[in-house]
Nucleic acid binder design. Structure first.
Lengths: 204, 204
DNA sequence: AAAAAAAGCCGACCGTGGTCGACTTTGTGT
DNA sequence: ACACAAAGTCGACCACGGTCGGCTTTTTTT
């Protein structure tokens, strides 16, 4: 009769996540208290903390699903014959549109993903890895098509592009870039810089 | 007799910041409660909130000083005939060393500066501006020395470099880069990429 | 089948950041 | 010099995230 426990645990965990999706999506992360969440999930407050270490960890678990969705949406939108820049722009702007729709939400996710605390670093890494995988595949194909140098480490190239995306989003959060078009333009320009290089023509 | 008020206000404000420097520096930001801070500053809790909107705003005000110090330290270390890359590395690694010394501290600062909340966005912008000014000056001189293309917007170049620094720090927070040397190497590589460009040789 | 151990669950409890309205001090009009 | 308004101060109070020790349920041992 070993397994009753396991099954129950899975169900409880699901119930919590389910309630989280409902409440976070509905009234936002900050405005959802653990007590509410517990009540909605039909468990005690303490129970929640035996499944997740902190509130933000629940948040990250919740985000994993959301991000998958964004990936799917983007993959569907870009044709297979798009240039690397086009693909990157589609990928990043897809993310960005999501962030703009849920500003507080996006900020929290970015904060956790880019500058994680020790407690949540593992979760952040998971999310980050799926991110990198996606970008790597993209860049790898671009290399094969001859759109990208072959003598550079893929990881660093992905990091490079990702960095440019981040600084752009940051500029938006700071109010330096206001509209989606601003962001689009800035990112495009930065990507172009990264491809062409910043050295004067003669010194390459 | 108009001015007694003003003077008192300035003194109170100073007292709060003074206490903040003391306590934050001593036992850290998270471990310092507003109550303690109030007591140390010799004012009531409510008073603090009439000078600052939130705890993290106090933090940012406190950081402005700290950052100035880092700037000064860096400026002093790089000779005037250093290459752009050398200067950038000195600047960024100076920052980074500060961050490593105060890990939680640095994370908070970065979070607030890169993805600010509406409430603190103004303060973040101030910090960011001083940052950009510094980098701009550096890049401007590099342009004049012919180390940098002239047909690019300085702001975007600074943003580009800054982005690469951020992603590197992020990688450190994620545990992907462990030692200071790792960080140094990664950043150097990324900067080099940005200068040379990522396009294959033939396609520039 | 009974007893002991292990695992899981719970909500009263703690200290926190932040709010609020009552109170005090400073400035101003007469 | 006085009264009144405005600005500034305060700490009791609130809801929150997170902890903890006692309680219940499942599993293992005898």
């Amino acid at each position: 009769m070993a397994g009753v426990r396991e099954a129950k645990k899975r169900r409880t965990r699901q119930a919590i996540l389910q309630a989280a999706v409902q409440l976070f999506g509905d009234k936002g992360y900050e405005r959802t208290s653990i007590n509410e969440l517990a009540r909605a999930a039909g468990v005690g407050k303490g129970t929640i903390y035996s499944y997740f270490q902190t509130k933000s960890e629940i948040f990250l678990a919740f985000c994993e699903d959301e991000l998958e969705q964004v990936y799917a949406e983007v993959a569907q939108k870009t044709g297979p014959d798009a240039t690397l820049t086009e693909q990157l722009m589609a990928f990043f702007m897809g993310q960005f549109r999501y962030v703009t729709r849920h500003k507080d939400f996006g900020r929290l996710l970015l904060r956790e993903m880019i500058f994680p605390k020790e407690l949540t670093v593992e979760r952040s890494k998971d999310l980050d890895n799926s991110y990198i995988d996606y970008l790597s595949a993209m860049c790898n194909k671009a290399q094969e098509r001859g759109e990208l140098r072959r003598d550079v480490d893929l990881l660093f190239v992905c990091g490079h592009f990702y960095a440019l995306y981040l600084i752009t989003v940051s500029a938006w959060y700071m109010g330096r870039l206001q509209t989606e078009d601003d962001v689009d333009g800035a990112l495009q320009l930065l990507l172009q810089q990264s491809l062409e290089g910043l050295l004067p023509a003669g010194r390459k």
